[in-house]
Write a protein that binds this DNA or RNA. Sequence first.
DNA 1: GTTGAGCGG
Length: 283
Amino acid sequence: MPSADTDTKPSWADQVEEEVPGEDDTLPPSTEEINGDTKIVTDYKLNEDGKKVKCVRTFKIEKLKASRTVAARKNWPKFGQSQNDKPGPNPATTAIAEDVFMAFSTTKEETLNQTEEDPLKKLGQQRIVQCRVCKGDHWTTKCPYKDTLEPLQKEEEDKTKAAKPEPPKPDGKTGKYVPPSMRDGAGRGRGESMQPRRDEGATIRVTNLSEDTRESDLQELFRPFGTISRIYLAKDKVTGQSKGFAFINFHRREDAARAIQGVSGFGYDHLILNVEWAKPSGT
DNA sequence: GTTGAGCGG
């Protein structure tokens, strides 16, 4: 940066960068002192008013490998254009432009990988779901015996509970939440208010729908075949654009079968509809 | 050519 013609004809830019030439020699030299893992750098400079200012900076020397190599490099003898400079940084050639903050993520990543690997191994070894009713490889709610086996199991549970009731607490509460349907005085016939579960196996899939078909259109189209319990028109969640297929649930399987017979191949909105039995989702 | 979303544990 400094050139031979600075003292003969300095440009205004050089003057700004190097401060006032010639004044540097009156300032004491910078010193570096290392005390354990602390480094103290003392240097002198002129402030905006031209007054001498002593500047003391302390650094903690990190134990990281990268910091050690940087620290070792600082002990190298000066070379090249700076080999005749005084000890310490020369303000004419050294500038701290800006602080750069670095996020060292390596240690975090390492620990993350370690914790991620173990559960993954476990997942490969063990089943993810187990039915509480039949111990099968599916969710309890999907159990084929849910409607037959589970009520029986609950009755067994109730019997054992009745055999040894929990001792009531002084305030008369057991401390456990009891849903209204299970409280004393609740109607005996559990589930009498529950309507039968949605008819599985009475779902048909309609494809090749034009994209402006709406659920009400499907309702009209399929109502003649029997009671419809549910209509699902697949749409893009964001745009609401129809995906061109739908699921129709009938209460009775016979109605669904007749709907397949009646509507499959039906010309609708310049397209030929395709209607089949729907497979259970997720497979 | 096109088979949903939600509920758990």
